[in-house]
Nucleic acid binder design. Structure first.
Lengths: 149, 149
DNA sequence: ATTTGTGCAAATCGTTTGCATCTGA
DNA sequence: TCAGATGCAAACGATTTGCACAAAT
């Protein structure tokens, strides 16, 4: 169900190569900042980042990028199918490096998102959409709270 | 599954009475603006409103309320269990007058929310939450797009 | 009389945009 | 070369906040 070939490995050379070809395919030049951000995003497994956090990471990693470019890049990557956008609350938007069909745990206390493991979660008894409409996507967010005990 | 007695009827006298008692129960004074907003919200079946839209409605209906009060009221009602908050995209927050367990269709084209009818929609194969955490709520949003045909 | 709520306008926060400057093919 | 990218700072839209005034109990 989850396409393994759709993810990024751990080898950063592979990451860079794959990224460059994906960017080219979308008509996006593999510029310094796009490649740098791509490495942060895809360099170490699945991630859920906000623009602000990615910006901090880039800055900390001596990759000078402007916040505007981080936003641009995240949106361009999303349009290119490299990222998936997730709105969890009215505040911030998360970008998920795992673009395959899957759902999320939201840790309400620290506003952190996690993929739901063993991704065979399914939505049952979904009525057919009204005429003229098709299902674009189904988002399931399981909100978790600390056990008060 | 859906508790019918948990909703508001059509009779505005009942609505007002019920609202007043619910407000009292939450330690909220039934002020002019809270009652007025409550009537708009609960007067005609289940609704999904944004603060901005409710503000416009109140203004149009000759109920002078400030936007700040609309926000305050929506949050207080939510805390009192009269409303449920739904974040659908990173932009706006919707408040749902139906507080029972149910899920939503999101019409992406016009950013409108609808309850999924025949609400026996269920999420299957959900793994147990990590230790120390409990499921606070499960949100399912089915994104619908116009059929391109 | 005291407490609680309201309204306004200014402040905040995440995000976007305009525009001059740079850069990669 | 020159379309396309970047960076900065100003603009934005939704939401919140501070504080003086008004209304409920």
């Amino acid at each position: 169900m989850i396409a393994a070939e759709d993810r990024w490995g751990d080898c950063s050379a592979d990451v860079a190569r794959e990224l460059a070809s994906r960017l080219n395919a979308s008509g996006l030049r593999p510029t310094r900042q796009r490649v740098a951000l791509g490495e942060l995003l895809f360099g170490k497994g699945d991630r859920h980042v906000t623009a602000e956090r990615l910006f901090e990471e880039a800055t900390a990693a001596q990759m000078p990028v402007s916040l505007a470019t981080v936003y641009n890049t995240l949106h361009q990557f999303t349009a290119a199918g490299l990222l998936r956008e997730i709105a969890v609350d009215g505040e911030r938007v998360y970008f998920d490096t795992n673009t395959s069909e899957h759902h999320h745990f939201l840790l309400e206390d620290d506003e952190e998102l996690y993929d739901i493991p063993g991704s065979n979660v399914a939505v049952a008894n979904l009525p057919a959409p009204p005429a003229g409409l098709r299902v674009a996507r189904v988002d399931v967010i399981v909100r978790l709270r600390r056990d008060q005990a």
